[in-house]
């Protein structure tokens, strides 16, 4: 499912003395099955954009296309249930939204709310619990007896249980230890591929955007200012700085190496593995020449 934003502007508390404009003519497309990262400095409008993806917020001007649904500024949108089922949002610290007596009931809550039978919802919950890397034994436990990392996985299973076509992730790894961060990000990447999802990652982590995304949009002061593949976005360090963003550590290190070698490597590297291979290659070439 694709999402298109056309000239979207949004103001909080519109028409009151507290009106505050957060988005200004935001305009970009997220084609089906893309892994899209949205990056930007704190206060750049990332979180406001995110809430337009399933019509939690409606634009004060402009249009949002969510699959074949159209959300237009100023028009009441009726029956958004289908949109909310198809676009699942994993908010920051999603474990704060857990509330049921057992993990099983908590995961089943979403799909049953959307009219799925109890049997089907339970079957989904049982399948998802192992998919997110938890043992079956947690199903009958209270979600509040689990560790923070486990609670996060239960909350994610609850979003996946609605069988969304688009999954929106808002800083999904905040507060997790490095292993937990990698496990969760790898899990979403695998889901993205296996279930042919459209994945939207809103993040401060340039490293995650570099490693996982097909495409990156930069938000700055309420506008989308730049879009491209990670290799293109992270090539131009000066422009990133203008938007108060630091390139990933790998890219900064690559620049140091290039400075030392006196020439550029053949491409902008996005992972440590890639950079090590490129340096090795450059050294082999250097030796062959001398």
């Amino acid at each position: 499912m694709d999402i298109k934003l056309q000239q979207v502007s949004y103001a909080y508390a519109q028409g009151t003395p507290f009106e505050k404009r957060a988005l200004f003519d935001v305009d970009f497309d997220i084609p089906s099955h893309t892994y899209q990262a949205i990056i930007g400095h704190t206060g750049s409008g990332k979180s406001t954009i995110l809430q337009h993806f399933n019509a939690l917020l409606r634009p004060t001007s402009g249009e949002v296309h969510i699959g074949d649904r159209l959300i237009i500024a100023g028009k009441k949108a009726k029956d958004l249930k289908a949109v909310r089922q198809k676009v699942g949002i994993v908010f920051q610290f999603p474990e704060h939204q857990l509330f049921e007596e057992t993990v099983l009931k908590d995961i089943m809550f979403g799909p049953m709310n959307f009219g799925i039978s109890e049997e089907e919802a339970e079957a989904r919950a049982r399948e998802l619990v192992s998919l997110v890397g938890l043992p079956d034994s947690v199903l009958d436990k209270s979600p509040f007896d689990l560790s923070g990392g486990q609670m996060r996985r239960v909350a994610i299973a609850g979003v996946l249980a609605m069988d969304p076509e688009v999954i929106v992730l808002d800083e999904p790894t905040a507060g997790l230890d490095p292993r937990g961060q990698k496990e969760i990000m790898d899990m979403f990447y695998q889901l993205h591929q296996e279930r042919h999802l459209t994945t939207i990652l809103v993040t401060h982590s340039m490293e995650d955007a570099a490693r996982y995304a097909d495409n990156i949009v930069i938000m700055h002061e309420g506008k989308n200012v730049l879009s491209g593949t990670p290799r293109i976005i992270f090539k131009d360090v000066e422009t990133l700085k203008k938007f108060r963003l630091e390139p990933p550590r790998i890219v900064r290190f690559q620049q140091k190496i290039e400075h030392m070698m006196g020439h550029s490597l053949s491409k902008v590297c996005l992972t440590e593995e890639e950079l090590a291979a490129e340096i090795a290659q450059a050294l082999r070439e250097e030796r062959a020449e001398s």
């Binding site: 292993r179 937990g180 290190f253 440590e272 593995e273 090590a276 291979a277 340096i279 090795a280 050294l283």
Partner: peptide, 19 residues
């Protein structure tokens, strides 16, 4: 459950690549 510091991780990968 933790990670290696960036420079250490890259040192290991470079050695693996035969650098």
């Amino acid at each position: 459950g933790l990670d290696l510091p960036f420079a250490l991780k890259l040192s290991k990968l470079l050695q693996k690549e035969g650098v």
